[in-house]
Design a protein around this nucleic acid. Structure first.
Length: 586
RNA sequence: GCCCCCGUAGCACAACGGAUAGUGCAGCGGCCUUCUAAUCCGCAGGUUGCAGGUUCGAGUCCUGCCGGGGGCGCCA
């Protein structure tokens, strides 16, 4: 997009960084132009540059003197109203109110709110990946919610995102599951559990498998039949798949997740690729036979007793494991989808495995150097005992139940706070708020950190939560409703920055574009969560001290309306990038 | 045994190598005749697991130790 922001980007950091660099070059020579301007937010000013401290050593000059010369060469006319050197050589920068006002007005009039469109990359994102005929658990919740937020964000930045739902639809378990389906009958109540309560179905099959040798034998035979493409077995397998699709789609709809059937790219889709893939690896000497299995041994990967860890691509019985299909996904995404950047939103426990997959793909030439691959590690979900939370019989962690519980909690608060609203409205709002609460709880912690599962906290509607952000947005909409205006329209009113609360709010609004850009680069939606929470806090403080509709004069009223509208749109857009709804009212 | 991640306030979490380590919850104390009090304002709370090292500067980087989690040949 054309930069229509006077002097460059709306964010103070992006505006000042090149200015500092220019000053460094002017003061110390062009060879230092590339030095990091070390711009940071400051508690003593709006921003500070610590470049002088870093440069002092290289220049053989006292840092204080470096700072002095830097400031002498610095041209921040129109941007900063004050530049001060303090401490050992910090350069404190205070922005001019007039500059802030001009920039925030540009943001307010910008349909994209300062988010620039990046050069488009093709980005397949692997996320969610539930298992057929199995309940989705809290671990799936996380990769689903984080992956979906990344997909939305990258799309907004202009990339071509290709969602890849690598459903677990193949493997030895399916012998047991198909055999169980056959025994209970396809149209039986027991079979229907696949759609409504997959855990129950799975557990029933498991119990028979563990306790009935005859069944276990039939299940094993059924695996062979499935892999051999036996017609009836495949038909039953497909039936399980179809029922599970309904289950997935119910969850996705309940969670407001963008995945559709078109994004399904399960393990079985690669079945035909696996023999050839293995043959190629073997012919080229990348994979070798070991103990009957076809393995890739990579330098640097050792396990017990220093023995090399194999990546098994073909089992000794001739079957294929998930390593082989994972290799096939890379080859497919690079070769057929023309990917520039591969993203795997997968549990942290798969770290070693994926490293080996990536290394093997590089070795085989399926993953060229100019294609980036990232494992967005999803941290373990821990119980309150700090042990890994696992689904096993007795643990009632049905994802749908969790969603329902969150919605009910929101409903309770809503009934208390807004009994005046009609039933249908409260029904919709409770869903938006409850699901927003779950998603924000999931997104606001760094995706790779472990996560103590605490339902009460997730569902709590106070503090650093989704509902808090939604409430801030709803209050803005309420102001506009009272004025008979629409908060969603880009506003062309003149903005003045006078009160400290107005200044703080305007400053926060300038950062949206760079925060979104950073989320796209680092793949960390929690930064956007933190930003939006701070924006909501800043707005709430503004709301407290700056009357909008009852502003002292018409110019102030117009200015504050414009600030409110911009805040609303940033909130709504930011929440949308996270996959969180913005309720009309709360 | 080897490898990876983590250890920050009572709890849950932040902090591109930059000044006095932040935010929420919980606790204590204030503010509703005023655009929505699911809000806001204030107070208190810390030897960033321990010990060294690198650096002008370390929660952040390096080494060792302690503690927690995960992974390590035919489940996916």
């Amino acid at each position: 997009m054309a930069r229509h922001y006077p002097g460059g980007m709306p964010s103070p950091h992006d505006t000042l960084a090149p200015v500092i660099s220019a000053a460094i070059a002017a003061a110390f020579g062009d060879e230092h132009r590339g030095a990091d301007p070390v711009l940071r937010s400051s508690q003593f000013a709006d921003l500070q540059s610590n470049a002088a401290l870093a440069l002092a050593k290289r220049l053989g000059m006292p840092p204080r003197e470096v700072a002095t010369r830097l400031v002498q060469a610095l041209d921040v006319t129109g941007v900063c109203e004050r530049v001060e050197i303090s401490g050992p050589g910090f350069v404190n920068l205070t922005l001019a109110d007039s500059w802030i006002a001009a920039m925030v007005q540009q943001v307010a009039e910008d349909p994209r709110l300062g988010v620039e469109v990046a050069p488009a990359l093709v980005v397949p994102i692997d996320y969610s990946a539930p298992n057929v005929a199995k309940e989705m658990h809290v671990g799936h919740l996380r990769t689903t919610v984080v992956g979906d937020a990344l997909a939305r964000t990258l799309e907004h930045l202009g990339h071509r995102v290709i969602r890849q739902n690598h459903v677990g639809d193949w493997g030895t378990n399916f012998g047991m599951l198909v055999e169980h389906l056959l025994e209970v009958g396809e149209s039986s109540e027991a079979a229907r559990l696949v759609e409504t309560d997959p855990n129950a179905f799975y557990q029933a099959a498991r119990v028979k498998f563990d306790g009935d040798d005859g069944f276990a034998d039939r299940a094993r035979a059924r695996v062979v039949a499935l892999q051999a493409g036996d017609g009836e077995t495949v038909r039953l397998w497909r039936s399980l798949y179809e029922m599970s699709k309904h289950y997935f789609n119910r969850i996705y709809a309940a969670l407001d997740v963008t995945l559709t059937d078109a994004d399904l790219a399960g393990e079985s889709t690669y079945n035909d690729d696996l023999p050839g893939l293995c043959a190629e690896l073997q012919e080229r000497g990348i994979a070798v036979e070991s103990e009957g299995a076809l393995c890739v041994f990579l330098p640097g990967f050792t396990g017990r007793e220093g023995k090399p860890v194999p990546l098994i691509v073909r089992k000794s019985d001739g079957g294929y494991g998930y390593g082989t299909t994972d290799l096939a996904t890379i080859r497919h995404r690079v070769r057929d989808l023309d990917a520039d950047r591969l993203i795997y939103v997968v549990g942290a426990t798969q770290s070693l495995h994926l490293q080996m997959i990536f290394a093997t793909a590089r070795l085989a030439g399926w993953l060229p150097e100019d294609v980036e691959v990232v494992h967005v590690q999803i941290g373990n979900v821990m119980g309150e005992d700090r042990k890994l939370l696992r689904t096993r019989a007795g643990d009632s962690l049905r994802l749908m139940a969790l969603i329902e519980e969150a919605v009910e909690a929101a409903r309770g608060v809503l009934d208390e706070a807004r009994p005046d609203l009609p039933e249908s409205t409260r029904h919709t709002l409770a869903w938006q708020i409850g699901v927003g609460a779950i998603k924000f709880a999931d997104l606001s912690v760094a995706h790779d950190s472990e996560y103590v599962f605490d339902l009460a906290r997730m569902v709590s509607l106070t503090g650093n939560t989704g509902p808090y952000l939604q409430y801030a947005a709803a209050r803005i909409r309420s102001i506009f409703r009272a004025a008979g205006l629409d908060a969603s329209d880009p506003q062309a009113r003149s903005i003045a920055v006078v009160e400290p609360a107005e200044r703080a709010l305007a400053l926060a609004l300038l950062e949206f574009g760079s925060v979104v850009r950073q989320v796209g680069a680092d793949l960390g939606p929690h930064r956007l969560c933190a930003y939006l929470f701070e924006l909501a806090q800043t707005f709430s403080a503004f709301y407290e001290v700056c009357p909008v509709l009852k502003a002292p004069d018409e110019a102030t009223r117009q200015s504050r309306l414009a600030l409110c509208a911009a805040t609303f749109r940033v909130m709504e857009q930011g929440l949308a990038l996270l996959g969180i709804a913005t309720p009309d009212q709360m």
